[in-house]
Amino acid sequence: KKVLATKVLGTVKWFNVRNGYGFINRNDTKEDVFVHQTAIKKNNPRKYLRSVGDGETVEFDVVEGEKGAEAANVTGPDGVPVEGSR
């Protein structure tokens, strides 16, 4: 997949743990970017399912997906594990 941007910060708009996807709002362009649970690189080690929490700040790369921009290599800021869904 073509990389459109790297090390982008954003805020998780919503994430559905059961369906394994959601959207992140980019801090720079204010665009919403699709995020799938497989894109989460560093999950909260205390959680079994990969997820990001609503309102959580995350860092990610933006790649060209089949339906437009999507997140890849999702971590917390500066590469720490994500907090995950509460």
Rank of each mutant, 00 (worst) to 15 (best):
E64I: 13
A72V: 13
N19T: 15
Q37G: 09
L4G: 01
R50C: 11
L49M: 12
V63I: 09
V63T: 04
D61A: 02
G55L: 05
D78R: 13
K47T: 13
R86M: 13
D54M: 15
V33S: 02
K1C: 01
V82N: 09
G76E: 15
K42H: 15
V33A: 02
N27D: 10
T29A: 01
V8L: 05
N44Q: 12
G20R: 10
V80G: 14
K47L: 10
T38M: 07
A5S: 08
P77R: 11
A72P: 00
V3P: 05
P81I: 10
K13Q: 06
A72Y: 07
K7C: 05
R46A: 12
N43K: 14
G10F: 00
D78F: 10
E66V: 10
A69N: 08
P45S: 14
T29M: 01
V74I: 06
K7I: 05
P81D: 13
T11V: 11
V3R: 05
Y48E: 13
T38C: 07
L4T: 08
D61I: 04
L9W: 06
V62N: 02
D32A: 02
F23K: 04
I24L: 10
R50A: 13
K2F: 00
K30A: 08
G84I: 10
I24P: 01
R26I: 04
G53I: 13
Q37H: 15
N44E: 10
G10I: 00
T57K: 09
E59L: 15
N19L: 15
T57Y: 08
D28M: 00
P45F: 09
L4C: 03
G20L: 08
F15G: 00
H36K: 07
F15D: 04
L49C: 11
A39T: 05
A71P: 02
G68T: 07
P81Q: 13
R18L: 07
D28W: 00
S51L: 12
N25I: 15
G68Q: 03
D28Y: 00
T57W: 07
K41F: 08
E56F: 08
F60N: 02
V3W: 05
N44K: 11
E64P: 00
G84C: 11
A5R: 03
K47H: 15
F23D: 05
Y48A: 14
V3C: 05
G55A: 07
N19D: 12
V8N: 02
F23Y: 08
R50M: 12
T11C: 07
G55C: 06
N27H: 14
R46Y: 11
N27F: 09
T38Y: 05
V82L: 15
R86Y: 12
T75V: 08
G79T: 11
V33I: 12
S85Y: 10
R18Q: 10
G55H: 07
E31A: 05
Q37V: 15
Q37S: 14
V33R: 01
V74Q: 01
A72E: 08
I40H: 03
A71D: 05
K30P: 00
R18A: 09
L9N: 08
V12Q: 00
D28S: 01
T6D: 04
K1I: 05
E56P: 03
T75P: 01
T11K: 10
K1W: 06
V12C: 04
K7R: 14
K41D: 09
E83T: 13
V35W: 08
V12W: 11
F34G: 05
P77C: 13
K30S: 08
K47P: 09
Y21T: 06
K7N: 11
T38A: 08
D54K: 15
L4P: 03
K2H: 03
T6R: 14
V33M: 01
V17A: 13
E70I: 09
E59S: 11
K41V: 14
A69Q: 13
E64S: 08
R50L: 10
N25L: 08
N19I: 15
P77K: 13
G79W: 09
K47S: 14
A72S: 09
V80M: 14
D61Q: 07
K42W: 15
L4R: 01
V63A: 04
K42A: 14
I24M: 03
K7W: 02
T29E: 02
G20M: 07
V80F: 10
V58P: 01
P77D: 06
K41W: 09
P81H: 12
K1N: 08
V35A: 05
A39W: 00
A72G: 04
V8H: 01
G20S: 03
V35N: 03
N43H: 13
V17E: 12
V35S: 03
F34N: 03
T75F: 02
D61M: 01
G22N: 03
E31H: 03
A72Q: 12
